[in-house]
Design a protein around this nucleic acid. Sequence first.
DNA 1: TTATTACTTTAGACGAGTCTAAAAGTGGAT
DNA 2: ATCCACTTTTAGACTCGTCTAAAGTAATAA
Lengths: 238, 238
Amino acid sequence: MLSDVMEDYLKTIYQIQARSGPPVSTSAIATALDKTPATVTSMLGTLEERGLITREKYKGAELTREGETVALEVLRHHRLLEAYLAERLDYSWSEVHEEADALEHHISEEFERRVAAALDDPAVDPHGDPIPSADLAPLEDDDATPLSTREVGDTVVVSRVSDRDREELEYLAEAGITPGTTLGIVDVAPFGMVTVETDDGGEQSLPESIAEAIYVVDADTDGTDRDAGSDVQEAGNA
Amino acid sequence: MLSDVMEDYLKTIYQIQARSGPPVSTSAIATALDKTPATVTSMLGTLEERGLITREKYKGAELTREGETVALEVLRHHRLLEAYLAERLDYSWSEVHEEADALEHHISEEFERRVAAALDDPAVDPHGDPIPSADLAPLEDDDATPLSTREVGDTVVVSRVSDRDREELEYLAEAGITPGTTLGIVDVAPFGMVTVETDDGGEQSLPESIAEAIYVVDADTDGTDRDAGSDVQEAGNA
DNA sequence: TTATTACTTTAGACGAGTCTAAAAGTGGAT
DNA sequence: ATCCACTTTTAGACTCGTCTAAAGTAATAA
Ligand SMILES: [Mn+2]
Ligand SMILES: [Mn+2]
Ligand SMILES: [Mn+2]
Ligand SMILES: [Mn+2]
């Protein structure tokens, strides 16, 4: 059996690896988990012994297939919980992350199945992140890029939004920007300020930090299979 | 902040104290939590320092008001979770206990509120045990006694059923005996075997171990306020 | 009253996960 | 080619919750 702590390390390594690719540095993990680098080095040793990661000294870590499976399991729990809380317990999308973090290590497989069944096997969580399937098959990486990398004139659809910052999420819910929203980029000002036009014709100016947290795809690349779970995306963003 | 482990000790002390009164012996706690007596002695020292229990050496422990409040909080979480799982996720009453045990330390106060609201503030859990109120006021002790202490001719109503043994609970669900069921005692045989007649006229013979786990009140003392939450009692006992 | 027995506490050890401080390695700039 | 700044690892310590083994206490039986 793996401890909660080990599960959190594996989840974190997975997420950094998904963004920046392996190897994942000690300090990146330390920052993400708010631990000292020395602590991380020690735990990486344990995870390596258990066959969950491979490691090159002074370079960084990489998940093994087994480690990846554990990470996907935890991520499935996390995202199913987020979806359930938003859909069935009236949580807003800015509140679900912390609650899911606290519960993800403690639910049974039976609970996981029942929650998934209650929601009819949702494909994405309230932030637009894909929910790993029950068989824990690897997730394909998506082609979404931050809004901050796009240019004036682009028309894009919001694919997902980083769920790490409550205030950002509240701001975006207020602005009516959630997964599925279509945005036209009207202006890009100095310091990364992006002005967008929403479906309803309104204009919003978004600071760079927000524009970096919004992942978008081209409008014509839209609605392929990501939208299967858009009922969940729509829910509880008041 | 209290650890999960401390919460479990306090919950356990509360439950033993409710059954047998203080002081609660080291060995009783050790048995209930499946730890060694030495371990329990050590933790009792910690709980005493924190002001959660009082203690007389070689005699046993007793909860302070503060300790009792913590225990009631954990118990509220546990029983609300059991009720929610049975009512909203289709769990049977034999499955809820373990899941609630795993989750009770990890839900937020917000989650507690939302679950309570979703169920319309249930008064009892699926086993008939009272759910402490949100203000954590002490529970009055009920007057229910084990079916095994009753005599031929008595007509009684099931008040609650011990939730510790899955197989017992499955057996009872099968037999149609749940909180609220009226039973007539038809026979008491050697070795404590009790034969009862159920509402529908059927007869059941219950081994002593089962009869000890069923807490009943006199039929005429019935339906005072315990029945406020009988919708919950009825749910999910397939 | 004393001896037996059961229970409780003390003493000491250990694994998990964490930290701080110091040593070692890495990679770019001079 | 050497040095410097930064990162990583090592070394050692600490807390928490647990255990085993030994010693102490209480209650009862002889
Ligand atoms: Mn799972
Ligand atoms: Mn999310
Ligand atoms: Mn609570
Ligand atoms: Mn119960």
